[in-house]
Write a protein that binds this DNA or RNA. Sequence first.
RNA 1: GGACCCGUGGUGUAGCGGCCCAACAUGCCAGCCUGUCACGCUGGAGAUCGCCGGUUCGAAUCCGGUCGGGUCCGCCA
Length: 622
Amino acid sequence: MAEKGLLATGLRSDVCGALRASDAERRVRLAGWIHRRRDHGSFVFIDLRDRYGIVQVVVDAATAPEAHAALVDARIEWVIAVEGVVTPRRAGTENEKLPTGAIEVSADSVRILSQSKTPPFYINETDSPIDESVRLKHRYLDLRREPLRDRLLMRSAMVQAIREVHHEHGFVEVETPILIKSTPEGARDFIVPSRLQQGSVYALPQSPQQMKQLLMVAGFDRYFQIARCFRDEDLRGDRQPEFTQLDLEMSFVDETSVRSFVEQMVIEVTKRTRPDRPMQQLPFPVFTYEEALERYGSDKPDLRYGMELIDLGAALPAATGFKVFDDVRASGGRIRAIRVPGKGGVARSEIDDLTERAKRHGASGLVWIALQPDGEIKSPIAKFLSPESVEAIWTASGGKGTAPEGDLILAVAGERVLSAEVLGRLRVEIALEANMADPEILAFCWVHRFPMYQWEAESSRWDATHNPFSAPVPEHLDLLATTSGDLSKRSAGDPAGAALAQQYDVVLNGWELGGGSVRIHDRALLERSFALMGHSLEDARGKFGALLDAFEYGAPPHGGIAIGVERWAALLANQVNIREVMAFPKTQSGSDLMLEAPSEPDPKQWEELGLSVRPTKRPTGA
RNA sequence: GGACCCGUGGUGUAGCGGCCCAACAUGCCAGCCUGUCACGCUGGAGAUCGCCGGUUCGAAUCCGGUCGGGUCCGCCA
């Protein structure tokens, strides 16, 4: 909390929220918004609000007639300045709900600084939800309300902590340009046409990736930036077209040293921002991608609850007689399951719903086995299950009868990755619906050793799983070397497909907070990697020429990470939507409802840029 | 590009074929009130039900389209 002296201005000696019993008898000047008013005729109470809090101001017609007259006219959300004496409240009229509730300010002077129209929604009440488009149109009023205000204050504290911790560890904060060259990194670029060089465009950075690697070549050794990033893709609750990354890069590191710093930093920032929220496990548990997939069906596991995936195949005999299971195993697929505790008495309609969802996620079906409260087994495949198999299933899932209501096993048979991912999603959905996760706990973990490449069947080529600059783990270098450089000979069976990257993600409560890697700092290796992904040498040099060139002038081994600031802030603020931790977010269709952006430019602007636009249907508005 | 949900006085909701030129709460306006704190009391104003079209004797209500907002898939790290 800031010092009173620093907050004093010509209009105020104190802030509203900070007055306490110890200020009694002081004469103060306050300025703020009228939060509420209670007019009793011969005297008026005002709750005066600023961002520090609320204090009650009372004006008595008998002792301060002019001030009283002013307040009789004043309305909610008007901005006023008052002058008066801090007075202990009469016995029995203290308000324990307010930090300032022991005192009130007896005002003898009231000045109207600014009037307000009736706001489109309540500033002083936040219990009932307001349609988000209304909130966005009047964002400055929504920001005036406590929840959004507090979240932005928290985000500010968080960013301050980020800067502090990095400076404490020798990091240099460097700003990188917003107008850069288009460097397709996967997402679609935002484009800014150049006036000076008509027909050419700048791109807005999807991240400062190349810049920060160049800073390592420059010898900055430890860099960080709170960087604005831009991606022209469809929006989601956790995706905005412009967003902020904590971007950092370190030289002379291996994977362990980067993760070790990042982990300390994340813990420290989290503690300084939300000291009240417990972290589930320190140090962060570390999973390989493979392990995360096998155990949680996800590369961003939520560790706040159990329901890990079970490999039913191991519990069942080689041939069950149930065609679906036997066929899947014959073709190399898996039979996986999760056990939902307490759901033994599940209703048929609920099973249908779960089956529907499993199919939507790509499964061909969902098999269920219910251990009912009475101990009976109910399942469409009961006749294929010997008593031994049933026993084995329960043993594999951690023993039977953990809940008196019985348990429910949900099984999916299918291709190795797909079967895991389907159950991984069901696991998250079921946990959400059953409130299985403690909302206060912060469960961080690392997931690492991702595959370098994934096979793109349509284009018959390998593509970077994360980013194309990630280095392979040292023991897999030869997998890249032994894969033919000839594009036409590329196949899903190439040795490179098995290569793992020195790539790591930080995960929090089932959200990917950020990801990074140890980078390739050798020009030849980087060119080879691009070649594997089907880029010609000229192509790669055209897009990443500066980086490739720089690597010929002494590039230190380096690595880093980028962390989504809004996602982190949203999780710390217990929000599922990053708009709730952003001052001025955009809608799902990319509009700013307050500024009414995007908008058509003046025709002259097109002309200056040497551009013309095909006429299209424009929304006419509702 | 696709699927689904929502749109009724300022705000949040109810109404889901005639009882509705629309109800409730809150807000707003006016008056009253010497201790309130979501003050209270009395009275009042305020919506052609997002928009367009259709079905029907009759539409806030049913159907189609469209606009806006949201959730999700694709996309995106």
